[in-house]
């Protein structure tokens, strides 16, 4: 097994070393945040291949931008911001690029969340379809809240929008998801607040 001399260091130390050009430190840092970046990308980009591309772009953006990271925000906040921006950039780029009709999102049989693989695939497709109905900005807010479990202040900082905007985007995004997924919500979910639609 390969020995990783910086594995015991905390994020700040790894950032400092990475800024000095330490590849090993950056590698460990990216590995620590990889799952989170991947989760953001997977839900933002809807299909698996696009998510891989976005993840790669996000990691490269981290590598290129780590020298400019000034430490004013937490490294985790900065990583989330880079990941979201990479996904938004990738979405915009793909919107501008015409895609062949036969390029349909792959249904990945590589992972199964339940006992029935067929059901898992159907569920995943349904989630992907529901997410694709959300505008990217709404999608980002919902993903950061419900996938990454960040609080509103962090999300506001990552998206660089006011807290009220974050709440609004999350609420509207969830409403679309509920409609698309036939989810009426339940008391075991997040805090339930009665809606007061005008």
């Amino acid at each position: 097994m390969r020995r990783r001399p910086h594995a015991w260091r905390d994020d700040d130390e790894l950032v400092r070393l990475a800024r000095e050009g330490d590849r090993e430190a950056l590698s460990i840092l990216l590995d620590r945040y990889y799952d989170r970046i991947w989760a953001i990308a997977r839900r933002m980009m809807v299909n698996h291949h696009d998510a891989e591309d976005a993840t790669q772009q996000a990691l490269i953006a981290v590598a290129r931008g780590i020298g400019r990271f000034d430490g004013r925000a937490a490294i985790s906040t900065w990583m989330h911001r880079v990941a979201v921006n990479a996904c938004l950039d990738e979405l915009r780029r793909r919107q501008r690029t015409p895609r062949p009709l036969d390029e349909v999102p792959e249904t990945e049989p590589r992972h199964s969340s339940g006992p029935d693989p067929a059901t898992a695939i159907v569920e995943r497709d349904a989630i992907d379809a529901a997410m694709s109905d959300l505008a990217p900005e709404f999608r980002a807010a919902v993903v950061l809240r419900d996938v990454c479990d960040l609080d509103y202040d962090e999300i506001a900082e990552i998206l660089a929008v006011p807290g009220g905007t974050v709440r609004s985007r999350i609420a509207r995004g969830r409403r679309v998801l509920r409609t698309q997924l036939g989810d009426a919500g339940n008391s075991n979910g997040r805090e339930l607040v009665e809606e007061s639609e005008p």
């Binding site: 969830r174 989810d183 805090e191 607040v193």
Partner: peptide, 18 residues
């Protein structure tokens, strides 16, 4: 500005990115 919760099942599906 009101909170719209997602059900546990939906949250679970949403978080299951593989």
């Amino acid at each position: 500005l009101t909170e719209v919760p997602l059900g546990d099942a939906t949250l679970s599906r949403l978080r299951d990115v593989g």
